[in-house]
C-alpha cells in the first residue's frame, strides 16, 4: 500500500485531526505573538526611563496572558499528538503488517540500553519513546527512538561547567536472534578511536581491562567498517557467519551513519544514528497533503525489512 493510499484511507481521521491541528497552530501562534508583545513592552520600559513602570506592568500582564495561552496550546497539542499517534501512525503500521503496534509513551528501557552493550559509555541522561513492536513469523522485534547522552564537567574561571555529549540519537532495533548463544558479541563502527583501541587490545592484551577480546574476522569489507569484540571467539564466528557479515554490510550501506550491533541475552540490538524525530505530528503544515507520512513510513518499512534482510526468521539452528 502506498503512502497516498494510506493517506486516502485515513481521510476522515485526517479531516478531523486537521481541525484539531489548526486549533493547536492558532493557539501556539497567538501565544507566541502575545509573549513577543509582552517582551517588547518590557524592553520599551527599560529603554525609555519615564515609561519604566507602565512598561513593566503592561509587559508583565501581557507575558502572563501569553504564557497561559501557551500552556493551553501545549495541552491541546498533547491531545492532538496522542490522537495522531494512535490513529494515524497506528493505522499506518497496520497497513504494513497487522502485528505492528505503537506504544508511544514507552521505549527501550535504560537498563536494556546499557545491557545491550551497544556503546561503552553509560548514559547520564536517557530518553526513549515511540516503541513499535511486532513479529515476523516466529521472530518478535521492536524498535524505539532513543536519545542517550553523557555528561562531562570542566572547571572554568566562572565555576563548574557541564557539557552534554550525545551517545546516540536515533533508533534502536531489537529482535529475538535465531541462534542459541551465551556470551556477548559487539560490532562497533571502526572510527579512529575504535581502530586505536582494537590495535592496543590486539598488541598489548594485558592492558585490556574488558572481558571481551578482539575478534579478527575474514571479511575485508566488514573489517573496514567495523571492529568486533566478543566474550567467546567461536561463538562470535557462529553468529557472524560470512553471510551475516555480508548482510550487516548491506544494511549499513543503506544508512548515512555507521550502525552499531550487539548480540547479547539471545537478542540482537542494532543502533541507527538518525537526526530526525519520527512519528511526530505536523503543527504548522497541513495534514491533508499526504506527504507528511512519507519519512515515517520509510523508517517503519526499513525496520520491518531488517528481519528479512538479516534472515532472522530462518529457524533451522536449534532455536524455534
Amino acid at each position: 500500500m502506498t503512502e497516498t493510499t494510506i493517506a486516502s484511507n485515513l481521510q476522515n481521521t485526517l479531516i478531523e485531526l486537521e481541525v484539531q491541528r489548526k486549533d493547536v497552530s492558532g493557539a501556539k501562534l497567538k501565544s507566541y505573538l502575545i509573549i513577543g508583545t509582552g517582551i517588547l513592552f518590557v524592553v520599551a520600559g527599560f529603554l525609555f526611563g519615564d515609561l519604566f513602570l507602565a512598561g513593566a506592568i503592561i509587559g508583565g500582564v501581557t507575558l502572563i496572558i501569553g504564557f497561559v495561552i501557551f500552556s493551553k496550546a501545549s495541552k491541546k497539542f498533547s491531545g492532538y499528538r496522542h490522537e495522531f499517534k494512535q490513529r494515524v501512525i497506528g493505522a499506518a503500521l497496520k497497513s504494513i503488517d497487522n502485528s505492528l503496534e505503537l506504544n508511544y509513551e514507552s521505549g527501550l528501557p535504560e537498563g536494556n540500553f546499557i545491557s545491550s552493550q551497544l556503546f561503552t559509555q553509560r548514559p547520564d541522561r536517557y530518553n526513549s519513546q515511540d516503541q513499535v513492536q511486532g513479529n515476523v513469523g516466529n521472530t518478535r522485534f521492536s524498535f524505539s527512538e532513543v536519545h542517550a547522552e553523557y555528561k562531562t564537567v570542566t572547571q572554568t574561571k566562572n565555576g563548574r561547567q557541564e557539557h552534554w555529549h550525545t551517545i546516540l540519537k536515533g533508533i534502536v532495533f531489537c529482535a529475538d536472534f535465531n541462534k542459541n548463544f551465551n556470551g556477548t558479541t559487539v560490532v562497533r563502527p571502526k572510527d579512529f578511536g575504535a581502530a586505536i583501541g582494537a590495535w592496543i587490545s590486539d598488541k598489548v592484551s594485558l592492558l585490556s581491562s574488558s572481558d571481551k577480546e578482539l575478534v579478527k574476522l575474514e571479511s575485508p569489507d566488514f573489517c573496514k567498517k567495523f571492529v568486533t569484540y566478543s566474550t567467546d571467539q567461536v561463538e562470535a564466528r557462529y553468529i557472524l557467519t560470512p553471510a551475516m557479515m555480508e548482510r550487516l554490510c548491506e544494511l549499513d550501506h543503506k544508512t548515512k551513519d555507521t550502525i552499531s550491533v550487539s548480540f547479547t541475552d539471545s537478542y540482537v540490538y542494532i543502533a541507527f544514528p538518525l537526526s530526525k524525530d519520527y512519528f511526530e505530528p505536523p503543527v504548522f503544515k497541513s495534514l491533508l497533503d499526504g506527504s507528511f507520512l512519507e519519512e515515517d513510513l520509510e523508517v517503519i518499512r526499513f525496520m520491518y525489512s531488517i528481519i528479512k534482510e538479516l534472515d532472522l526468521n530462518t529457524r533451522i539452528w536449534g532455536k524455534f
Partner: peptide
C-alpha cells in the same frame, strides 16, 4: 535436523577460529 545444522555451523565457526589463531 536443526541440531545437525547447528553443529555444522558451530564446526565451521571453530575452524574459522582456528584459522584466525593460526594466521595470528
Amino acid at each position: 535436523q536443526s541440531t545437525w545444522t547447528e553443529s555444522e555451523e558451530q564446526i565451521a565457526a571453530t575452524r574459522r577460529t582456528y584459522n584466525a589463531s593460526v594466521t595470528d
